[in-house]
C-alpha cells in the first residue's frame, strides 16, 4: 500500500508552479487581507463621542483610558475622551461593538510594530 517516493510527482510539478512564498515586507502581494480585518485601533468619529465611558468598561484588557479632553480635541459632552494603550489592546473589537454611537473602529492597518511604548498610545 505504502510506497517509496509517493510524493515525487507532486514535487516535480511544483518546480513549474509559482512558489507559495509571499515576499511580505518587500511587497504586499498575495497577502489576502480581508475586508473586515481587525487592525489598528482608531478614534474615528470623535465628533460623535459622548464620553460615556462604556468602551473603557467593556475593554477586557483595560487598554482604554479615559482622559480629559485637551484644548485641541473635540469636546465631548462629559469632557472625557478615550485613548488606547495599544500595547495592551488585544484587538477584540469589543469596544467598537459596545460603543453606542460607532465612534471607534479597528482599521485595516495591520503593521503594528512600534519602537517605544509611548508611540503605542493612540489618541
Amino acid at each position: 500500500m505504502s510506497r517509496l517516493g509517493a510524493m515525487e510527482k507532486e514535487l516535480l510539478k511544483s518546480i513549474k508552479k509559482k512558489p507559495a512564498t509571499v515576499i511580505y515586507p518587500f511587497t504586499k502581494e498575495g497577502l489576502n487581507i480581508p475586508v473586515g480585518l481587525r487592525g489598528r485601533w482608531t478614534y474615528k468619529n470623535p465628533d460623535r463621542c459622548t464620553g460615556c465611558k462604556i468602551c473603557e468598561r467593556v475593554c477586557p484588557s483595560s487598554a482604554i483610558e479615559m482622559v480629559e479632553c485637551g484644548p485641541d480635541d473635540i469636546q465631548t459632552k462629559t469632557g472625557w475622551r478615550p485613548i488606547c494603550h495599544f500595547d495592551r489592546c488585544i484587538l477584540c473589537a469589543q469596544c467598537v461593538e459596545s460603543c453606542p454611537r460607532s465612534v471607534l473602529e479597528l482599521s485595516a492597518e495591520f503593521e503594528m510594530a512600534f519602537l517605544s511604548r509611548d508611540d503605542m498610545i493612540i489618541r
Partner: peptide, 25 residues
Amino acid sequence: MYSWRDREIVMDMLEDLSGNRVNYS
C-alpha cells in the same frame, strides 16, 4: 511545507469569516 501551505487556505477562510487569523472572537 505542503500541508502548511494548504492550511493557509482555511486560515484565509477563517480570516475572511472573522477578521482575524488566530483569535477569531
